[in-house]
Each structure stands twice: as C-alpha cells, then as structure tokens.
Design a protein around this nucleic acid. Sequence first.
DNA 1: TAAACTACCTAACGTTCGTTAGCAAATTAT
DNA 2: ATAATTTGCTAACGAACGTTAGGTAGTTTA
Lengths: 205, 205
Amino acid sequence: MEAIKSTRKIEMVQLAASLFRKKGYFATSMRDLANHLGIEAASLYSHIRNKEELLENICFRLGAELLESLDRIESGSLTYSQQLEFAIQSHLAVITRSPDEAQVFLLEYKHLTEPRLSAFIKMRKEYELRFRIILRQGMQQGEFRRADEKMVTLTLLSALNSTPTWFRSDKGMNAEQVSAVLTDLLIQGLASPATPVFSTINPSL
Amino acid sequence: MEAIKSTRKIEMVQLAASLFRKKGYFATSMRDLANHLGIEAASLYSHIRNKEELLENICFRLGAELLESLDRIESGSLTYSQQLEFAIQSHLAVITRSPDEAQVFLLEYKHLTEPRLSAFIKMRKEYELRFRIILRQGMQQGEFRRADEKMVTLTLLSALNSTPTWFRSDKGMNAEQVSAVLTDLLIQGLASPATPVFSTINPSL
DNA sequence: TAAACTACCTAACGTTCGTTAGCAAATTAT
DNA sequence: ATAATTTGCTAACGAACGTTAGGTAGTTTA
C-alpha cells in the first residue's frame, strides 16, 4: 500500500492492467509482460516483489479512487436525486479514465490471495453500500421508484461498469456525453416519455 | 458440437462451469476438477478430449439456448415493446436457470482458442445484433426513448447479465418476480413516476 | 572519487500444468 | 457367455510457470 516511486514500475503496472484485462491474470505470464517491455522476465523483479503486487496495485488504487469520489458527494448538501446523478457521473469518470484498470478491478480481483482478497472485498462492499444508501434514502423520500435495494444497486453498477466494453474515448462521444445519456437512460428508463406502452405485467413464458 | 451422451460427462461439464466461474478457467486445474469428482486427473480423459472441450461445451450450449429464445419472440406478431419485454424475460430465464454456465459464457469465453473463439464471438455478436434490432425498431416507432443503439443494447444486456451475481433462486424472489421487477426498472427507469425530480442535465464534475 | 543505487542480464531452481500410454475392473449389450 | 463399452487406475512426459541467485554495466549521490 506504499507509494509507487519509479516510473518504470508505473509502466509495468499499466502494461499489466492492459494484459490482465485482455488475457486474464493467470493467462498473462511474467515472460509475456517482460517481452512487451523488451526485457527479460527475471528483470521485472528489480522493480516488483512478485506478480500479485501488480494486481494489488491495480485493484487498490482504483478502489481508492472510487471511494474518494463518493466522499465529495456525500459531504455536500444535495438531494438524493442529485447525489445519485453525481455518483453515477463520478463513477463513470473514474472507470472511463482507466478502462483497463477498471476491468481488472471488476473481474480479476478474485485472483488476489489472502489477506489482500478479504481487504479488497471489504473495500468493494463499502463502496456498494454507500451507493446503496443513496438509493435507499431516495426511495424513502419518494424520489426513486421503490424496489429491492440490492437488486437496484447491483443492476445500476453493472450497467455503469459495462461502459469500458464499448466506450472508446477517441471516437464518437466523450466521457461526459456518455455520462449524461447513461444517467438519463437509467433514471428515466427506456420507455418513450410520450407513450407509456409497456404493460409492466410479465406474461408467463 | 455433437450431443453429450454419458451422464458422467454432463457431471463434468456442470462441475467445470462451477469451478471456472469461481476460480477462472486457467486457475482451475484438471486435478482440481478430478478431486471434486473423487477421481484422478488422468481419468477425466476417458470422457473428454481435453480441457478446452469443457469450456466449449459450456459456452456454445448457452449461446444456442439464448439464440433459440429469440427465435420464438421474433416469429410472433408482437409490438416492439412486447418483443423487448419477452426478450428480457427469456434472457433472464436462461441465465438464472444456468447461472454458472452463464457467468462462464460471459467472462471465460476468451480462453477459447481458434477457430472456436471466432465462432463464439460471431454467435454472440449475432445475439447482440438481434437484441439491438428490436431496440432500433422500437425507437423508430417512437415506443422507446431515442439514444445511441449500441450503448443502450450493451447497457441493457449488462444489467441483465449481472443477475446471477446477486440472485439466488432458493431465497427471496423467484426468477419470474426478478424478471418482472427488472423489466420495469429498465423500461420505466429509476425515477419515481409521481415526481420527475431529475434534471437530466449533467453538472460538470 | 568512492559509494550507492538503478536497471538490466544469464542461468537455473522446484513446482505445477495438461496430457498420454497402458492396463484393469465393472457394467451393459448381443 | 462373450463381446463391447464405460469408468477408473498408476506412472510418467515435456513444457511452462513464478521466482531466486549472482553478476555487470551505467548513473546518481555523498
């Protein structure tokens, strides 16, 4: 959990994020990583203690960023609707800024070993809980549709977290435009405002 | 792509799905699998050709199920809103019935090697496209809010695909209840119908 | 200018991996 | 009754893995 000093180490962590995302943690060998840097595998160990340190750096740095972004929102005096809007937008800002790291954070964290795995899960649960509390309070105030809290929280976060799979910052929309459209979609729904044609009653399959 | 005959092989594929989901494809060894079945690793090869065959079976069987479920919907004479409702519900039915397989289908497919990987990606793209066409037509008809097609499709599917991470069929809601609530959430949105308090304009961060 | 540090190297280690060969017992089909 | 199939075993293979030991230039610090 110490600060990263050397620029070479930063390179390694960023490259690791890219490879871990594309191929998966276990499918990425230290020799893979080294080859992409133009060095030998053993040379990596001048900069890092072991492979897991790379994963650890990625996962915990992104987790800290996400938690920080919630701090700012909760400390202000906003309505729950505004809090949710900001939370969505800052969540998207973090993960679109670091798409590789975000995907590793979301999918590869499970390859952490104890005690780091438990610490990570605790951190992630805290983030989900704070998101969930905003939703709960908004539901209680009548600002949000009332529904199963856990379901809504995880569905919402999953929708947000899928952004790096299709979003490329270099073409089409920029991150803020995505944020605005996605916020609108999730909050207002897919149905056209003019014509509420959906039955909302599910026919049996 | 041939039919599975032996029941022992079915056991193996199901167990593999469970382990691949929990630990990942590469982190699951043939010795892991064998131990859970109470046999030696080499004995697995009386039933399967190699490790990848397990992954192949999981991914392609689920893909076929999902595509079939769309066939039925497209063939009927339904409005696009109804088609979407049915598509959401049958998608959820498939993935809640096979949550382990679904997570492997979604996350571990990338460990397939060619030519299976390309075939899988083609299958998955076809499924996404057919989902997308329903959305496109619904937007053109004015039944759905107009927004970036690709974004809406992938966000919607990601929201649906997160269901196995929190849904346990044995407690709380059953699959059909989840389906109804989730359909409503995605189509009508999170905002309370009574009070449209959201600005839908994003403040800068 | 000497000491310390950075950034890499070669060589090799012990371990685990997926898989094969060859065999044996039990069950099922003819 | 016998042939075929199913289901498992032991032993072992070559390859790939993460990592360590020990060394060497070049660069920075004291």
